[in-house]
Amino acid sequence: MNFLTALKLYYGRKITESLRNPAFMIMTAGLPVLYLVFFAPLLKNLPAGPGLPTGGVLNMFMPGLLCIIAFFGGLYVGFGLVDEIRSGIIERFRVTPTSRLAILLGPVLRDVTAMLVQALIITLLMIPFGFKVHWGGLLTLLVLMAMITWISASFSYTLALKLKSEDAIAPIVQGISWPLLLLAGFLLPMSLAPGWLQVAAHFDPLYYAVEAGRALIDGDFKQPAVWKAFAVLIPLMAIVSLWAARSYRKAVA
């Protein structure tokens, strides 16, 4: 069967499942609101200080926030797959004559979709609080975010496929999530950090995304951070996708 047809079927199945799951819908739509209520009020009273951009404070925090959403949007999805492996659904799909890569990418695209919905909700909600949107920049940032979710979701699913147990995935996922987030400078720019920390940050793919985000949010495409982010994320996406595709082809699900 045609790859795209299969992809559409697997994607459709996950979307239907999500729309029917109230917990998933509340989490997806509610999380941005939560960020807004707990976080935006703090920024209002933040004085401009050394190292902080003079522009809108929200414009500095938004890229970091969006990157967290994108990263976490994919990182934990493997837990759901463990359940599907146990119930035999994945095995059933793998004996059909459809592409095994489509079995992976259907759910990944669902995760990307859910993340984009969250990103749009939060963007729209932040506008009344003084967030100035540059639409072209935002669109480019959304592309970067889609790549991040794609990478973290593929990684998480493949981990689940290989380890087949929540208990085995949890420490790995948790072990990498906080270092990567903190090193990315998602709250405050890494330019405030001491030298060694800045060096360490350069090994964190998220750092490049956040840096690019801070430029893109103001529509500043000329900054090198923008192309650097693509230069880091595109190869990473290729590597993770290849690893995932290989595992899905061979896996003992």
Binding site: R13, T16, R20, S87, G88, R92, T96, T98
Partner: peptide, 25 residues
């Protein structure tokens, strides 16, 4: 192939399960 655990989607109906399976084939 019908595995020991079956492999139907529990959150969907029999009709939806069968329809998707037919499409996949």
């Amino acid at each position: 192939y019908v595995s020991q655990t079956g492999g139907s989607d529990r959150m969907a109906t029999a009709r939806e399960n069968l329809y998707l399976q037919a499409r996949l084939y």
